[in-house]
Amino acid sequence: MRFILLFFLIVSTQTFSQEKMPNLTVKDLQNKPVHINNDFNETDKIYVFSFWATWCAPCISELEAISEHYSEWSEELNMEVIAVSTDDSRTQRRVRPLLNGKNWPYQVLMDTNQELKRALSIVNIPYMVVVKNQKIELIFNGYTQGAEDELYQSLKAL
């Protein structure tokens, strides 16, 4: 009986897709609050929120792979990648040196008590949410080598 209910719930929740990003503020590296909806609202610009952590190897591979293509992608498309770190107080100190050691061009947000991660019901990282005109267009979870090409094709199609 319980499983029927669970299955039923899963099926019926599929009519809903989270349309907008949650109405939250997240701090950036300088401790300044950044509003997830209001501060990312340039018309027709593609915002890619990539959830990562300093201890997550595939997340780092994904952001590394994107950074290699970032300058050419940004020329062709009006886009921006925002790397949301889900590191908590154990590893958040490692974020800044890692970023500079790797030379990434992204804006980084610090979701240290996982508020944004929880609001989006993210369980595993890497997890990517693509937003355009304040609407969630695409979601990708996990990363394998070469997936950044598929990502780019999907972004171009938007």
């Binding site: 100190r93 490692r94 800044r96 040196p97 890692l98 970023l99 500079n100 050691g101 030379n103």
Partner: peptide, 15 residues
């Protein structure tokens, strides 16, 4: 106490 130094291509953090 945590301090560090961070420039392009190099990062150091001490806790």
């Amino acid at each position: 106490l945590n301090f560090g130094y961070s420039i392009s291509g190099l990062g150091l953090d001490v806790s």
